[in-house]
Design a protein around this nucleic acid. Structure first.
Lengths: 301, 301
DNA sequence: AGCAACCATAGGCATTACCTATAATACATA
DNA sequence: TATGTATTATAGGTAATGCCTATGGTTGCT
């Protein structure tokens, strides 16, 4: 059974004859006849009673007609249907995101996303960079929001923004009143560090190594809120991303930019090298970028 | 777009690769690849992201998948679906029937028919032979129940039964007690006749002509019940079909067989010469025949 | 680096849908 | 009854196209 056979069949019904149907279908009458005969032999029953002047549907033909019409309308609408569906943003986007970004950008981004793509569904995966990379490579994750560096050659990235690291310290800390803070001020200072399996922890460590800072790590924890708590208690300081600062409404910490050679982490969207990001994925990364921009505008140190 | 392309597409999705899909579809891998590419170019978008080891659906592919599955399941089930539908007797049968049969056979036949084909619908058309023939030729009527002769060459018939004509007379009529009734007894007898546009009226007239009976038509009416009334009143007699007798529960008339050369009308099912009677049509005519048989058994004169 | 798995491309072959021409039939008209 | 017209079926050739084998180019694993 072929689609053109069904088309011919419906044309015969609607035009009331083989010859007329053939004209309508832009084929010669014998071609159409043959295909109808073929269809009939496949179904094992005649579809039409051929009378001299006209043809009428048999029982089998009557039963076939609605089914044929359904199939044809489905196929005819398939292209526009798909286009509409894709354009409307229906579908599921699988997103990965690292824990040191998620709490600060995700709430606002999710709101924006559901407004922009009301038909879309989102599958979220908050995890360490390593796991996210794995997910992207294994095609479980469409787009991951994380920070450089990413080693895997199968992954392609697009930079969303550079997120500066700023110094977090207690309002009572001597440096909180200094006119400006330089890298040298950080050497041998008591430091509260993030676990190194977190990429942010790794980045801070590398930054210190490069700048020949040798911080005295007095505490190591696994999330930024805890760092904030420790910092507010007294001597220890830490480096935290600016997006964290702009969502901190507690006021228990003071934050200072580092003026020279300010450290930063580069936040990117990452996807499988061979996959073209879907419209939803593009939309999502754009929204994350916008969310970050509006976050920075909302407050300055 | 072709059905086999959709089949290949679904096979790729389900098997997770072109080569595996090709095996499953019993074609060479390049053939399948070509068809997928063709489908993609027709839809204007890639359906799969080809990665080294595996392929994954694009957004377009995701949108196509359920539609393709729907179309394929429709087409795969089309043959069995039609067969079931036809076999179940769904559909409409258009039946024609003459007025001198309808009141006697139709009630029972309809009951039997709806029991045998609960899904079927019936379109009834009670009319004179002439109109029924017209309807059959114009394809408005599938099957007509009428009696011979039928002149039209476009019509094919199947004899259902021979319905004898019997003498109807008043219980007080002298002939009602006669040991047996012969044709000669009818010569020059007062006669109540049916309208000649009714085929039964015509048949009776022809029968009388052939047998050189010259009835004294004292009354002419247009239905058998009226004949019955007139007969019961006194002198006049009439010839009525046996199926009428067997449904007459009034008891106001006596009926006698005519022993020698008994007249009868041949009741047939008639349909367009070039149309094969549908299962419903066959079922209906069979049921009418059965109804007549059981009617005869139910009572004898 | 070498190998295995996989998809794409190229070119030839075979199937088949299509075409033209013609036959066969039904139906209307003279 | 004969003829013309409209219709579908048949026959045989042509062209399109789906399929095949062989091969190339990647990817990813060892």
């Amino acid at each position: 059974m072929e689609l053109h056979q069904l088309r011919y069949f419906v044309a015969v019904v609607e035009s009331g004859g083989f010859s007329k149907a053939a004209k309508r279908c832009f084929v010669a009458q014998p071609s159409l006849s043959q295909q109808i005969i073929k269809l009939e032999s496949e179904l094992g029953n005649k579809l039409f009673d051929r009378l001299g002047r006209s043809v009428v549907l048999t029982e089998t033909g009557k039963a076939l007609l609605p089914k044929a019409r359904l199939i044809l309308s489905e196929t005819d609408n398939i292209k526009t249907g798909i286009t509409e569906e894709v354009d409307s943003g229906a579908g599921t986007l699988s997103v990965g995101i690292i824990p040191t970004i998620s709490p600060y950008l995700l709430p606002g981004s999710l709101k924006r996303f559901s407004e922009s793509f009301p038909q879309a569904k989102l599958a979220l995966n908050e995890n360490l960079t390593e796991k996210l990379v794995e997910g992207v490579v294994n095609l479980e994750i469409d787009t991951a929001i994380m920070s450089l560096p990413i080693e895997n050659k199968l992954i392609q990235t697009e930079t969303l923004f550079d997120d500066p690291l700023v110094l977090a310290l207690s309002p009572e800390h001597p440096l909180s009143e200094a006119p400006e803070i330089k890298i040298d001020d950080l050497k041998e200072i008591p430091f509260i560090a993030l676990g190194e399996e977190q990429c942010l922890g790794e980045q801070v460590k590398n930054f210190c190594y490069e700048k020949q800072i040798n911080p005295d790590i007095i505490c190591r924890t696994w999330n930024l809120s805890t760092i904030q708590q420790f910092v507010s208690l007294g001597d220890g300081v830490s480096l935290v991303p600016k997006m964290f600062v702009n969502t901190d409404t507690s006021g228990i910490c003071t934050y200072r930019n580092i003026e020279d050679q300010a450290p930063s982490r580069t936040v990117v969207a990452a996807w499988h090298k061979h996959r073209r990001p879907s419209m939803l994925a593009k939309g999502f990364t754009r929204i994350v970028k916008e969310e970050y921009d509006s976050l920075l505008k909302s407050r300055d140190i």
